[in-house]
Design a protein around this nucleic acid. Structure first.
Lengths: 133, 133
DNA sequence: AGCCTATATATGTTTTTGTCATATATACAC
DNA sequence: GTGTATATATGACAAAAACATATATAGGCT
């Protein structure tokens, strides 16, 4: 079966992380997380994202562009890989700066989690009070 | 002292929620939360956001446009308020649909929180393993 | 009257991010 | 050859946010 990016339709609550599309720039740490486990190329990263229930699906256009941007930023480096069958792959490797950026994202996410908690608590209190009326 | 939207510069970790700007469309539930506590107008909402350490600061342009959008969506209604001194205010009142939308956001935030947890846990495991090498 | 500040709303432009569609090329199976 | 899988890339567009600016009312001060 061909990998079809148009079979996206977020199948519901069963699988797929809901942060993609909502949390700005979240694709970058997701790609860095995968690359921290070993070098890879765009098509494979796309498949790994699609298979992984903890990570959001990515549009191919966005994915390839994001990888190029990350290279420009210095988070990854790339080399052409012509070994193996099929068309040439651009093989991406994470850099030390990329790992550092991933740690920055971790701190950012922890802070966001705290903010979400505070917001939800307040909402619950307010909405609860509203029902009591 | 005049209310200056350009004194934004996110003063650091001391105050202000970091979700603004990162979480797409988050301004809407923030405004609805404030409006659920009573009708208000744009300028006042802006000041309340700026004062509230749990909510993100909003650019005036974005805030007024967002309020008009929310009215088009049916989450709020507005009437001109010419009482009191100064220029006329557009007074916004939350609707039943607005409250419902706020509940939808609550569910969305809870799901995002869970996804952040999962991501951070995995990151910690992976980065921990990397250090052990 | 003229000027400044506070109050209040609104529009215009640009950047970033994400979505959707499409183009291009290699290689293998039939 | 035709079709499918693999692989990368670009173009057009939409939404949200950031940044800049425009407009108007009203009160205080000189």
């Amino acid at each position: 079966m061909r990998f079809d990016p148009h079979h996206h339709h977020h199948p519901g609550p069963e699988g797929g992380c809901c942060l993609g599309g909502r949390l700005r720039g979240f694709l970058q740490p997701c790609l860095l997380l995968l690359l921290s486990q070993g070098a890879s190329h765009g098509y494979e990263l796309m498949e790994r994202l699609a298979r992984d229930p903890m990570l959001p699906h990515a549009d191919p256009g966005l994915l390839y562009r994001t990888l190029r941007q990350m290279e420009a930023e210095g988070w990854v480096t790339s080399t052409w890989d012509t070994e193996g069958q099929g068309p040439a792959r651009r093989r991406y490797t994470i850099t030390e700066e990329g790992l550092e950026f991933l740690r920055v994202w971790a701190a950012r996410l922890a802070a966001m989690r705290a903010d979400i908690d505070a917001f939800l608590e307040r909402l619950e209190r307010d909405m609860g009070a509203r029902q009591d009326q």
